[in-house]
Write a protein that binds this DNA or RNA. Structure first.
Lengths: 155, 155
DNA sequence: TTAAAATTGGACGTAGATATCCGCTTTTGG
DNA sequence: CCAAAAGCGGATATCTACGTCCAATTTTAA
């Protein structure tokens, strides 16, 4: 129902939120999040185009969150890679009525709207701060202490 | 987010609910619902396997709802062709913790659960009885009066 | 200045969802 | 009995999401 790409994007962003504002190389991120490294680069490019992450080439480079975890909602991440598809016009393509949906599609769209709303209402900061013993990305410890040499980015 | 197949299945079932308990041939149904006829036969086969519709071969045959519209939820239709995928175990595949999900996946699954719940709570009867001028399947009139010769099924 | 580390972008490959086709079987009316 | 109507099921085609590969570019450190 939610695409694999969305799952990957969220995993990546969650880990970057832990590290924020520090950066992480793509191969590192791929290993931790269990996302195919080559594919992750594509996902990260989408996130970069959306302004959610920023990347730095060259030695000591990598990817980092471009916004504060408190300001970043799950929805923004989802929409950056695979937007929730709301039903705005009749899927049967009949323009015989304006923008109104029939009862069936109204309900289907309402379900989509609920998901959108739920994602809108959760920031990355909330996800990583959630009380309880299980951390996002499962048994992977937050790694707050870990630093790479030259990991902090300028700009 | 919801597959095309789900959309097709719901369109078909909605029209059959209007016609219930009478039957309709697949080509007819395809035309009305704007679903590719050849593909619709596959979708209907899934619905038949799930016991949602029953079909009759030969002249005068066709497809009809196998259950009362009051007893049939949207969720049952969806699940027959493309079940809502709940997140039951950690997608990263680490069995290091039992059946509990991390905060991220807990939220994603909660969104799926909301959709499931919304679909569970709506019967086909409610969809076709919804007040308002727009009927499901858009500007297609309910066709309650229309009858094919030999349309009523036995069994 | 040069080699290594890192992202970028495009080309390519694969698999699953969507869609088509066709021969077969069932059923009924003439 | 026979022909037409209708669904059945398998084979095939297409399209898109997912994933890989590689040459090019940027950046830094030695």
């Amino acid at each position: 129902m939610l695409s694999q790409t969305v799952e990957y994007a969220l995993r990546a962003v969650v880990h970057l939120a832990y590290l924020a504002p520090d950066a992480c190389t793509t191969p590192e991120l791929a290993k931790i999040t269990r996302v195919p490294a080559a594919y992750l680069t594509k996902v990260l490019q989408s996130l970069a185009r959306a302004g959610i992450v920023r990347s730095q080439r060259g030695i000591g480079g990598g990817v980092a969150l471009a916004v504060e975890p408190e300001q970043l909602t799950i929805l923004e991440v989802v929409n950056a890679v695979d937007p929730i598809q709301r039903i705005r016009t009749c899927p049967l393509g009949l323009a015989s009525h304006g923008v109104k949906l029939c009862p069936l599609h109204r309900r289907m769209d309402a379900a989509m709207a609920q998901v959108e709303q739920a994602f809108q209402n959760t920031t990355l900061a909330e996800v990583i701060a959630e009380p309880g013993d299980i951390k996002p990305l499962c048994d992977i410890a937050p790694m707050q202490g870990k630093k790479r040499s030259g990991t902090s980015q300028k700009r």
